[in-house]
Computed example of a mutant assay.
Amino acid sequence: MTKPNTDAGMPIALTLEPGTYFRCVCGGSKNLPFCDGNHRGGELPIRFEIKERRKVYLCSCGNTGKQPFCDQTCGVELPVD
């Protein structure tokens, strides 16, 4: 994410099925947090794969070093599942 949203608070918690996903980073998608192909400013989505059904936490602040996943760089505590 090039424009961090530090007001976002918690990461986005989702349970995803196996497959390939594209995380929107430009904010132009009508299907957030996923890309719908409407790229603003030339920013391309982050492609990631899920191998088995699982809960993920997608970064909403843009400061993580493990895009698109939250690595708690912003200090947020992730719930224990």
Rank of each mutant, 00 (worst) to 15 (best):
M10L: 15
P68V: 02
G9E: 14
T73G: 00
M1T: 01
T2K: 07
D36M: 04
E52G: 03
L14E: 07
C26H: 05
C59A: 07
P45H: 09
K51A: 14
I12L: 13
S29M: 05
D81W: 05
F69K: 00
R47S: 04
S60A: 15
P79W: 08
M1L: 03
G75A: 07
K51G: 09
P33I: 02
T15M: 13
L14Y: 10
Q72I: 06
E77Y: 06
E17Y: 10
I50G: 04
C70L: 02
K66L: 12
P18C: 13
M1K: 11
P4R: 09
P33A: 06
K30D: 12
L58C: 04
N5Q: 11
V25G: 00
R47K: 11
I46V: 15
R23A: 05
T64K: 05
H39G: 03
K51P: 11
V56H: 07
I46D: 07
F22K: 07
T64D: 04
V76F: 02
D81I: 09
K55W: 04
I50H: 10
L78G: 01
K3S: 10
A8Y: 03
E77K: 13
T2D: 07
C35Y: 12
E77A: 14
N5L: 09
K66I: 12
P11V: 05
E17F: 08
G9F: 10
V76W: 04
G75M: 09
I46S: 04
G75N: 01
K3W: 15
H39I: 08
C26I: 07
D36N: 10
V80F: 07
Y21T: 01
H39V: 01
K3F: 14
N63K: 12
E77D: 13
R23V: 00
E49Y: 10
T6A: 02
L78P: 07
C26A: 06
Q67S: 06
E49L: 09
T73Q: 05
T15G: 13
